[in-house]
Design a protein around this nucleic acid. Structure first.
Length: 737
DNA sequence: TTAGGGTTAG
């Protein structure tokens, strides 16, 4: 027996949509009903989605009762209100899995991404009502309901309960292959290995473990639950040989990539390549990205098109992740252009990926622009932007974006939202407040690393020390990343001796830890120690990366070690195959400039594979000023105007004016000053600060406004005298030698 | 009618 659900009732339900009145004051249902009917004849699904997107769909909402008829129409009754009589089972199916949902999911525009977060639960809530009221439930009814629960975040235990309960309640609803693969899908999602083993045992006992659906689901479940050997065991260890089903093959490739077994993944991928589809290529590209092989991912991306496969949203999403990791602004812009051409910018994965690239490259202006154009409701894009502003130390902007979240409908239980609350601790609260206000959750080391990073940016040693003490007191196990963050924090807050002491006490060091230590030594004028640490890391068999060389070259430029710097630059490309980035080139130009070798700096800039950016030219301008070389300064000015435009960065014009002033070229200086006129040019004064007790004391050049300025300048005078005496002594010593 | 593989944040 099926419960009928007639079209007439749908019409009645629609006519009773009294809450519509509250949407537009003055309208009544007679205005609304023709509109609905009109839409039903065209694209009702869009209407339903927009409706769901625009309104509160919590279970207590006034609108919830109209969801079933709307979904009903969208699924079964496109062209008229007169339609077939539907059973409750069909309605359950319609609401949990309507055709449009599947189509949209396949094209990358899943409902989960385009409607408000509360809506999915309302589909389920309505489905459950229908399911409970249905007098006749068969196996398919149960499958639909279990599948609906399994795919909805937060309803996983309901799926398990229903799966168990069904075996006691209903003789006609037997456990079949559909239910078992659905349960495997659920286990893969919640990642509980022993549940997976139970379902697998059940499949073997009931003879449901041999179909290609079972195989792919089992491989996926074991892989996602962290048991790669079990995933391989599903195909009897014959990985890559005789895999007949493409989905099974792709599941295996994905499992290998997840495990970091890229060579094995590549072997399976290249075995019978004629069977590969877009998913195979996308899985392989994504595998390279997941394992830090971004360059290979970009190469494969190119080959994919060459071999006649079409890029889709998944392909671009992986490629964007690769560009972010490479921090390549040029590549990012190229991909951005391609994405615009392909019309994929509405996909939330894609738009947030583009925002992320610009944030990682530090170009917040572009990031803001993309973010505003392609939707401001993407929590990933907002997270990237907050982190981008934090990395630049721009706390007010980070705070502004965080506050904007309060107006949006992100789910409070969403783990992304949960993470953002941690950022709030960085932006807004002190660590002490964070610990007190959030004492139900012990922060993990990753959170602590973020907090320490913020302390380092703000050069706030006190909260940094609090966090260090908290780690020691609570006995939280610190990994290499946490120790590196502590070393970095102490170093950037000016406490290089603490940083060095901490570094010495650690027995296991990785490349990142050496990088922060080398950079710390370089910044504090311990150039030879920086070089010593580099040699030590090589001796320990660690592989330096591009950051290592930025830190090393930075050390060289601070003490004018031109030849040593040149050697490292050469070593980096030849021995370690590291492609120099713009930061490496900037270090070299600065190194030549500071050593008064302007011709070498110019020759080096001319050989660069890309145009010098404003940072390089700015460093070069400083050298021109020190050397009073006005001809080269004019050349740099021309380039700067090309890069930044006539209305470029005001600080650069100040810099340029001071170059001309230092050479007595008052006409040129006047010209630059006139260019600045009418522009909103502000120069942020450089300043130093020192924390004494609970107070921070800030000093700018020539500033005598401090209450104790007289004493401060007296001590400063003594220090200058002492340095002067030392310089004289050094000079005498050199003469004697 | 209901099940399988590939895409984002620290």
């Amino acid at each position: 027996m099926s419960q009928p659900y007639k079209a007439e009732e749908v019409r009645k339900a629609l006519k009773e949509m009294h809450p519509f009145k509250s949407l537009a004051p003055g309208r009544n249902e007679s205005d609304i009903f023709p509109k609905i009917r009109h839409i039903v004849g065209n694209d009702v699904t869009t209407f339903v989605l927009n409706f769901l997107n625009q309104h509160d769909m919590s279970p207590n909402s006034n609108f919830t009762h109209i969801v079933p008829p709307l979904v009903h129409i969208s699924r079964f009754n496109r062209n008229s209100l007169e339609g077939p009589v539907l059973s409750s089972r069909e309605l359950v199916s319609a609401q949990v899995w309507n055709d449009d949902y599947k189509k949209k999911k396949k094209s990358g525009y899943g409902l989960g991404q385009c409607r408000s977060p509360t809506c999915h639960s309302i589909f389920l809530w309505q489905s459950k009502n229908l399911f409970d009221s249905s007098p006749c439930k068969d196996s398919v009814t149960y499958n639909s309901m279990i599948s609906g629960y399994a795919r909805s975040d937060g309803y996983e235990s309901e799926a398990i309960d229903l799966f168990i309960q069904m075996q006691f309640d209903n003789d006609s609803a037997r456990i079949d292959e559909f239910k078992l693969t659905t349960m495997l899908n659920l286990v893969a999602k919640i990642r509980v290995l022993h549940y997976g083993r139970q379902v697998h045992s059940f499949m073997v006992k009931s003879g449901n473990d041999l179909s290609v659906f079972a195989l792919s689901s089992l491989i996926d479940m074991y892989s996602k639950c962290g048991s790669f050997s079990d995933a391989c065991g599903v195909v009897n260890g014959s990985v890559g040989e005789g895999v007949v089903d493409l989905v099974v093959k792709n599941a295996l490739i994905a499992a290998c990539c997840r495990e970091g077994e890229l060579e094995m993944a590549r072997k399976i991928f290249l075995d019978n390549p004629e069977f590969n589809d877009n998913v195979s290529w996308n899985t392989m590209i994504s595998g390279y990205v997941q394992n830090g092989c971004e360059v290979e991912a970009v190469e494969l991306f190119k080959r994919m098109a060459e071999e006649g496969f079409r890029w889709n949203e998944h392909t671009f999403a992986s490629l964007l992740t690769a560009c972010s990791a490479l921090k390549s602004l040029n590549l990012g812009k190229e991909v951005h252009g391609r994405v615009l051409k392909e019309g994929m910018c509405l996909n939330p994965f894609i738009s947030s990926g583009i925002v992320d690239i610009y944030c990682k490259c530090g170009n917040m202006r572009y990031a803001e622009s993309v973010h505003k154009t392609f939707g401001t409701n993407n929590i990933y894009a907002i997270t990237s932007m907050i982190v981008g502003y934090l990395a630049k130390g721009d706390m007010p902007e980070a705070r502004r974006l965080f506050d904007s979240l309060a107006e949006k409908e992100f789910r409070r239980v969403d783990r992304h939202y949960f993470w953002l609350r941690k950022i709030a601790a960085i932006c807004i609260c002190s660590f002490r407040e964070y610990v007190v206000s959030d004492d139900t959750t012990v922060p993990d080391t990753v959170i602590l690393v973020s907090l320490l990073g913020a302390c380092a940016i703000r050069a706030s040693v006190d909260p940094g020390k609090q966090i260090h003490a908290y780690i020691l007191r609570t006995g939280i196990k610190t990994d290499e990343k946490a120790v590196s963050a502590l070393i970095d924090m102490y170093s950037k807050c000016g406490f290089i001796l603490y940083a060095q002491r901490m570094f010495r006490t650690v027995s296991i060091r990785d490349t990142i830890m050496y990088n922060v230590m080398i950079a710390g030594c370089a910044h504090h004028g311990y150039e030879y120690e920086a070089i010593h640490h580099f040699e030590e890391m090589i001796a320990h068999g660690l592989k330096p990366d591009s950051v290592t060389f930025i830190a090393l070259l930075s050390a060289c430029r601070h003490c004018g070690l031109v030849e040593v710097g040149e050697n490292y630059f050469f070593l980096m490309t030849k021995d370690y195959a590291i492609q120099p980035e713009i930061d490496h080139y900037a270090c070299m130009v600065d190194l030549y400039g500071r050593s008064n070798q302007l011709e070498k700096a110019v020759a080096f800039m001319e050989k660069m594979p890309f145009e010098p950016d404003s940072i390089i030219l700015s460093a070069f301008l400083n050298s021109c000023r020190a050397n009073r070389n006005l001809e080269l300064a004019r050349m740099a000015e021309k380039k700067l105007v090309e890069i930044e435009g006539e209305n470029g960065n005001g600080a650069r014009y100040f810099q340029l004016a001071s170059v001309y002033a230092s050479g007595g070229k008052w006409d040129d200086m006047g010209r630059v000053m006139r260019t600045m006129r009418g522009m909103d040019v502000k120069k942020l004064a450089g300043c130093s600060w020192v924390q004494v007790g609970n107070g921070v004391h800030v000093f700018t050049s020539g500033d005598r406004s401090h209450l104790e300025a007289e004493d401060v300048y007296f001590v400063l005078g003594c220090l200058i005298d002492e340095l002067y005496d030392k310089a004289i002594m050094d000079e005498n010593l050199l003469t004697m030698m």
